[in-house]
């Protein structure tokens, strides 16, 4: 089930979270992701809620971190409300939120 996000267009550039952005739907099988900038050197802060926290919490966190790492992002805040999304959907939603948050001039 694991698909590494190594092929995204931003991966090799230095990217920065410029604004707050959201992705995902508030429904079963999906995950709602909200991303916002944070101060330099504050690191990656993840606030995770999941209906399957005890079973998959670590795995979700690992997938989220993997996507963030793929973009080379260092400082950001992520709020994640998971409603039983599969790994591919979690990765897609985090990627969408990041792409929306790093876009300039919107």
């Amino acid at each position: 089930m694991n698909t590494k996000v190594k092929d995204n267009s931003m991966a090799l550039q230095t990217v920065k979270i410029l604004r707050e952005a959201k992705a995902g739907l508030d429904e079963r099988g999906d995950v709602f992701v909200s991303i916002s900038p944070s101060e330099e050197n504050s690191g990656v802060q993840i606030d995770l809620e999941s209906t399957l926290m005890s079973l998959f919490g670590d795995q979700i966190r690992a997938s989220v971190l993997d996507v963030i790492e793929g973009y080379g992002l260092k400082d950001l805040k992520l709020a994640i409300r998971d409603q039983g999304a599969l790994d591919y959907a979690i990765r897609a939603r985090v990627q969408t939120a990041i792409e929306r948050a790093v876009k300039e001039g919107e």
């Binding site: 089930m1 694991n2 698909t3 599969l86 790994d87 591919y88 959907a89 990765r91 897609a92 939603r93 990627q95 969408t96």
Partner: peptide, 8 residues
């Protein structure tokens, strides 16, 4: 989402 779904 579709891209990740096809791969995974």
């Amino acid at each position: 989402l579709v891209t990740h779904a096809i791969k995974a």
